[in-house]
Design a protein around this nucleic acid. Structure first.
Lengths: 338, 338
DNA sequence: CAGGGTTTCCAAAGCGCTTTGGGGAATGAT
DNA sequence: ATCATTCCCCAAAGCGCTTTGGAAACCCTG
């Protein structure tokens, strides 16, 4: 059943039916009702391609993800995706996912030129990220999850990573720790830089030095968590506390502790950042993990909404948010031993 | 730059330009070259919406994921997605992701009726899965990742879960274990049933009984791995070996072992299924984990290809595959103590 | 050189929707 | 009764592509 058929069936013109369905004012209320009922009865749904062609809107948000690079933040990514997608589903839009092995530039170009998406969301921006400039150049609206260096204002949603990690570090300092390591994500990523900045700031403010060799950085995997923690703990001057960029890495850190016969929340204190992954919950760990918390899913939802606003013409300047981050106290932090 | 402009610029008709670009035979080789060069020079790309409307093809594959249910297999899901998406990118198609909180039926209906996608991929099928029948009913081509009960043939790709878990259990039996537990995924899912079947079969073949209380089942999270293992190990008759449905749960099992002062690969033997998640690698665990291995990413790639075949009219009967699963021996299996 | 086959191209008709630019009928004002 | 509004509705023109059904132009036979 298409518009034409529905219209002739109702004895109306396509114009009227289309308008009735799309809520335009120039159609009698009674007619609108008739149309709505018929549409319901015959399960009429406008053909997406036709509507897109006519309106010039794709009805879809693009996300391109480079297969090789930074796929390691997977569990976060899917959760994020769920958030975006959920918000979009309210207006019957979808997410168009494009994978690319290697260079993502041509993919963005294709999406722009074929008008396959109305806007894109860029996640995990680098400190210097060429994507933002590229997208501006090809005229593709973009909302960034995170921040980056840019010459012009750009729509973005970020969390206060620096503040969060400063607070986490402050907490450990308050407990009396002085040797505090940071198990960080890839240093090229803006959020990792911000976190390191927060950590450094807290230390320096108390007159301590932020030693670079106390802040290993790399993909936020369980494995790296283990490796980094192990290396640090086997030094002659091991840290007594860790600030960790992800609960996944925290799992690795915990494993390292156990291997060395140390127990978290007694011998070593731990604070990790929790993105709210449902599969890995800090509250059920042993000991329950103290975290900085911000739901990545909610960020996704908000980003979806922001992208919609952007598409609907909201000025970029109004679409910038930095969310505060909660510090959730649990059992993995204690006074340093001795 | 659109077709019309390009055509007038070249002094050709839209027809000819379109044909030249799409590789139809009725255009002179020299003309084709001219067109291709101009297209390249002006960066012409056909408008996706227009092409879709004209061809009746959406140029996109649908995946709907229910936000609430079984999102716990996230890390697997994204990896899977990467595989599909990668394959599709070769033909410039994309994945259309639709999230739904709760019922997915209306989403499938919408996708079908609006012709927003050419086919859908269903993952994590239940033993009795209403989706397959629904999709057949609304005429939406579908490829299933896994198997399910169905009245008619359906395109699917699955791995030999039963065989894999039989082999894993056989291995443990060969090493002399008799108390072998299965830490399984959600029992409503077909693959979990198959795995339990394999486990049971191996035991029964050797004259042992497959005790249901030795086969806990639930979402394949780290947490559940821990809980299940802990419960089993604290019984008066603890198992000496575990077959585990996911490396993620295996992480939890390992944690339980450590908590109880047991060491994997000595006191207790472990075999887990490895989907090849890049973030969680069994070979770098301590001890290196013996696994049944099948890359979920590759499955995704193949599923993408199968979906393309299906769209291009390949008969459903030719699109059924069950892949064998490798057994990779590492250090987490040993003779039972004593 | 006529007749038939190929090649190579084009005009025009969709695909199914939205939107512009009216226009007839009903309503209200004079 | 007449004119100006307002209310509803419609015909038709796109949106940018693909594809059908020719029609020239060319080549070959005999």
């Amino acid at each position: 059943m298409n518009l034409k058929e529905l219209a002739t069936f109702l004895g109306l013109s396509q114009t009227t039916v289309s308008r009735a369905l799309n809520g335009y004012p120039e159609v009698a209320e009674e007619t609108r009702k008739r149309v709505a009922e018929a549409a319901q009865k015959y399960q009429y749904r406008p053909n997406a391609s036709a509507r897109r062609l006519a309106t010039g809107l794709a009805g879809s948000l693009g996300i391109v993800f480079p297969i090789g690079r930074n796929l390691l933040l997977d569990p976060h990514f899917i959760e994020f995706l769920a958030g975006i997608s959920e918000r979009l589903s309210e207006v019957e839009m979808d997410v168009t996912l494009s994978a690319t092995r290697g260079d993502d530039v041509p993919v963005y170009r294709r999406l722009a030129r074929t008008r396959a998406v109305d806007a894109v969301i860029v996640s995990g921006p680098l400190i210097e990220d060429p994507r933002i400039a590229l997208l501006a150049e090809i005229g593709m609206p973009v909302v960034v999850h995170g921040r980056t260096r840019a010459s012009r204002p750009y729509a973005h949603l970020d969390i206060d990573n620096q503040g969060a990690f400063k607070r986490a570090t402050d907490l450990l300092l308050d407990f009396g720790h002085t040797a505090i390591a940071l198990v960080n994500g890839d240093r090229k990523l803006t959020f990792a830089m911000h976190r390191e900045e927060g950590w450094r700031q807290a230390l320096v403010t108390r007159g301590l030095t932020a030693r670079p060799d106390y802040a290993p950085s790399g993909a936020m995997s369980e494995e790296n968590g283990y490796r980094f923690a192990r290396q640090l703990l086997e030094r002659p001057d091991p840290p007594t506390a860790f600030v960790i960029s992800s609960v996944i890495s925290a799992l690795g850190v915990q494993r390292a502790l156990r291997d060395l016969g140390l127990v978290a929340g007694r011998d070593v204190s731990l604070v990790a950042h929790d993105d709210g992954l449902p599969a890995i919950r800090p509250d059920v760990m042993m000991p329950a993990l103290t975290t900085t918390y911000s739901s990545i899913r909610m960020a996704g939802e908000r980003l979806g909404a922001m992208a919609l606003d952007l598409i609907n013409g909201a000025p970029v300047e109004t679409l910038t948010e930095v969310w505060p981050v909660d510090l959730v106290l649990r059992d993995s932090v204690a006074r340093p031993p001795g």
